[in-house]
Amino acid sequence: SDEELKKRIEELVRRGNKDEARKLAENANSDEARKWWEKLEQL
């Protein structure tokens, strides 16, 4: 689900694993996940 995906992306970003988070968001084929990633990346 998008919610689970967003949690995983956020967790990866928090751990400093941005590349992994980006790949996850891009491969998810989910606009919501991509937007979430872009938002987190700004922080």
Rank of each mutant, 00 (worst) to 15 (best):
W36P: 01
K7D: 05
R34E: 03
S1C: 12
L12R: 00
E3F: 09
W36A: 04
N17C: 14
A25I: 15
N29G: 13
K18C: 12
R8K: 11
G16M: 01
K18P: 07
E26W: 08
A21W: 01
G16T: 00
S1I: 15
K18Y: 15
E11Y: 07
Q42G: 10
N17A: 12
L43V: 08
L40W: 09
D19S: 06
R8S: 04
A21G: 02
V13D: 01
R14Q: 10
E41I: 15
A25G: 03
L24D: 01
L40G: 02
E3C: 13
K18T: 13
S1K: 12
Q42A: 13
W36C: 04
Q42S: 12
A33H: 04
D31G: 06
R8T: 09
E3I: 09
E38R: 05
S1F: 15
N17P: 00
E26R: 03
R14H: 10
E32F: 10
L40R: 02
W37Q: 02
K39W: 15
E20R: 01
R34Y: 12
L43E: 13
K6M: 15
G16K: 01
W37K: 03
E10R: 06
E32R: 03
N27D: 12
D31F: 08
K23G: 03
A28C: 13
D31E: 13
D31Y: 08
L12I: 01
R14G: 05
L24Y: 04
A33P: 04
I9R: 01
W36E: 03
K6Y: 14
L40E: 03
N29D: 11
E4P: 04
A25L: 14
W37E: 03
L43D: 12
A33M: 15
E38L: 09
D31M: 09
R34L: 14
E26V: 06
K6T: 04
K39H: 14
E10A: 10
L43H: 08
D2L: 15
E10W: 13
E4Q: 08
W36Q: 03
A28E: 03
E10Y: 10
N17D: 13
A33W: 14
W36I: 06
L40V: 08
L24E: 04
R8P: 00
S1Y: 13
L5P: 00
W37R: 03
R22A: 09
K7H: 09
K23E: 11
W37P: 01
E4L: 11
L40C: 06
N29T: 09
N29K: 13
W36V: 04
N27R: 10
R34P: 02
R22M: 09
